[in-house]
Design a protein around this nucleic acid. Structure first.
Lengths: 227, 227
DNA sequence: GTCTATAGTCGGATAGAC
DNA sequence: GTCTATCCGACTATAGAC
């Protein structure tokens, strides 16, 4: 147990650098961000990046570990609750498809909520860059969050749609659903001009959630028709 | 009319630089790409970037003009044909919704086909970076292609779904549909691990098209229920 | 743990010969 | 139009005082 009034100086410096670096790396990318700019934004000396993180690259990795743990805080409790409810249900039966759809929406509500935060505007560009050119930093975030959550989503999509969970078609549909939720951050420039949204306000997120819900419901409603 | 056997030396250099720069900028981003690396990839002298484009920034802009005209070659003929068919139809009537759905799928077939090309792997990262941090280069591509095509898509979505074309809900749904088509390039790292696809082969694109079609059909099938 | 100072490298731009 | 050579600024990393 550590007294809250006693934060060691080094920890403060590390934290300031990481928080500032999310912003600076997010704006300009890894190469364009100079250690001088990073240090200035954090209000610390430039040489401290080398001391605490071994160099610019080390700080970059630390930033991704920080982002991963922040995303986990948002998503893991919801994912665990969803898993719990899913496992409690009988293996077969009519309500199972509808439950999966509901759980899917719960999961994406949390995801869209996370994206709504102002912090997301900073780390989304970082993650996107890693998606295009995956390095060690991408593994950190994929292994600890994206992979597991996507696995859960695939399972829910399979149950809600009646598809085989292991089929290519099911995994394609799962990614498409993810695309529907991500597009507003990913294509930020287009969103700005198309929606006339400068930033994603809570009202915007609420409107997105509503349309997302309708889209999911209609995509899986054919079940009712087929059965 | 220019004889094909007489390409002026300057044009050859400009073209080589632009083609190589799409690759180099796409891999590493604007800042990380050195003029030396750009010149080496094009097989020309480093000083020629300054001579022909005024500097690295000028080459970057030229790259986006090139990308915009390439995208136009793919999309404009299809977009014009869609517009023509749409305007020929009676303003009201039962088949109008179904036609809009068909035209929407035609448009996105062309779009997905374009994304399938190996060239797309290079310029998608470029456009994505501009989406996060729009500059003059983004305007080039938005004004000449993204904006107009998205306007057409919005119109089709409105007709197919019965929504008001100018409503926020309709524009949100339009962007979500775009997200479904873009996710496989945008979240490349995730696609690789989730689908076990190293590159997007024609077979992959074909599978995506098929799922995209099913998703669109089910999303707009509620019309049949409501009417 | 933090600072100053600097070594060593590499970048973009350009002058001037051809 | 193309080349060589070079200027000069900016960068990362680190040695060494405190």
């Amino acid at each position: 147990m550590k007294a809250p009034s006693n934060p060691p100086r080094g920890d403060q410096t590390r934290r300031a650098l990481i928080v500032a670096a999310i912003d600076v790396f997010g704006r300009t990318g890894f190469d364009a961000a100079s250690t001088r700019a990073l240090a200035r934004a954090a209000g610390v000396n430039q040489a401290l990046i080398g001391y605490h993180f071994g160099g610019k690259r080390g700080l970059y990795i630390a930033v991704f570990e920080h982002i991963a743990s922040q995303m986990q805080e948002h998503m893991v409790p919801v994912a665990e609750e969803v898993t719990r409810q899913l496992n409690e249900l009988p293996r077969y039966g009519a309500p199972r498809g509808e439950l999966a759809q509901t759980l899917l929406l719960n999961l994406f509500d949390a995801f869209l909520e996370m994206q709504g935060g102002e912090a997301a505007a900073h780390w989304v560009p970082l993650v996107l860059r890693e998606q295009q050119n995956p390095t060690e930093a991408f593994d950190i975030i994929y292994d600890s969050l994206i992979g597991p959550v996507l696995g859960l989503v695939t399972r829910l999509v399979a149950i809600a749609s009646g598809m085989d969970e292991t089929s290519e078609a099911c995994r394609i549909r799962t990614l498409m659903i993810l695309g529907q939720a991500l597009i507003f951050r990913v294509a930020r420039g287009t969103t700005e001009r198309q929606m006339l949204w400068q930033t994603l306000t809570p009202e915007n997120i609420s409107a997105i959630k509503q349309q997302f819900r309708q889209s999911i419901e209609s995509q899986f409603s054919q079940r009712a028709i087929l059965s």
